[in-house]
Amino acid sequence: MKNTVPQDIRERPFLSGRPRALGRGKRAAVTAIVVVLLLVLALRIVASGAINWQITFGFFFHSAILDGLVMTLELTALSMIVGVLLGIALAVMAISRYPAVSAASALYVWVFRGTPLLVQLIFWFNIALVFPVVGIGPWQVPINSLVTPFAAALLGLGLNEAAYMAEIVRAGIKSVDSGQSEAAVSVGLNRRQVMNSVILPQALKVIIPPTANQTIGMLKNTSLVSVIGAQELLTKTEDIYARNFQVIELLIVASLWYLVLTTVASAVQFWLERRFGDSRAVEVIAGVQP
């Protein structure tokens, strides 16, 4: 059967414009219900008087809070650097042709992914109980002078992150077609050159987006180190409310700052993923000149 198209279809405007979406009325009703519910909730919270918003806003730019914020950013950045570098090393170890090396990598990932991060942090903080001093020969240092709360936090977060990054990097390496390394060895590149110049630059496309995700997670996970008093945002917040008992007001301060950090980080992630649609970005990051 043939569909006949009216001859004058091109001259005639399409009906009277765009067709109307079905369910417009329903959509408005649902919107109204949600807005009303949120308003009621907000009103209850504000009007109850249980939260002193003056205190919340008063502490928002408090110097101790800002110090904590800087420490949170430092811990996030340094832990991610430790995590990424060690993660790459573990991923390369995982595909080693020496079984003992790949087994060591698997053991590391098993231990550090299989135990809670909080437990690991407390463990590093108390490492002096196991190894009171470290050193070689006559140079002996009491470990308590090395493992400050900051160092323990960095160890805990970084070593834990490395286990997750190892899996991410390994997936990235696996995503590169085996023909790439065959072509690379066929022109005489050695193992290290194949990895650094051919495989890792192409694996970045797969590695970058989940790494951005991990970084956002890390911003929030740093709050765990408050249990060892590492002076980051949550520790500082707790210090203040231990003195003035305005617990909720100060937790709101911390939460708003965490929201600011994760929102900015998500924007950066969005931008990164957009750029990585274009393979040129791989080259920029890998530092390969055209």
Partner: peptide, 22 residues
């Protein structure tokens, strides 16, 4: 082995050009 392979060129069915390079 890398040096020996450099003395033998190989052209593959699926080209295997390095995707990140011009």
């Amino acid at each position: 082995l890398a040096r020996q392979r450099a003395a033998m060129g190989m052209v593959f069915q699926r080209f295997n050009l390095f995707g990140h390079l011009t």
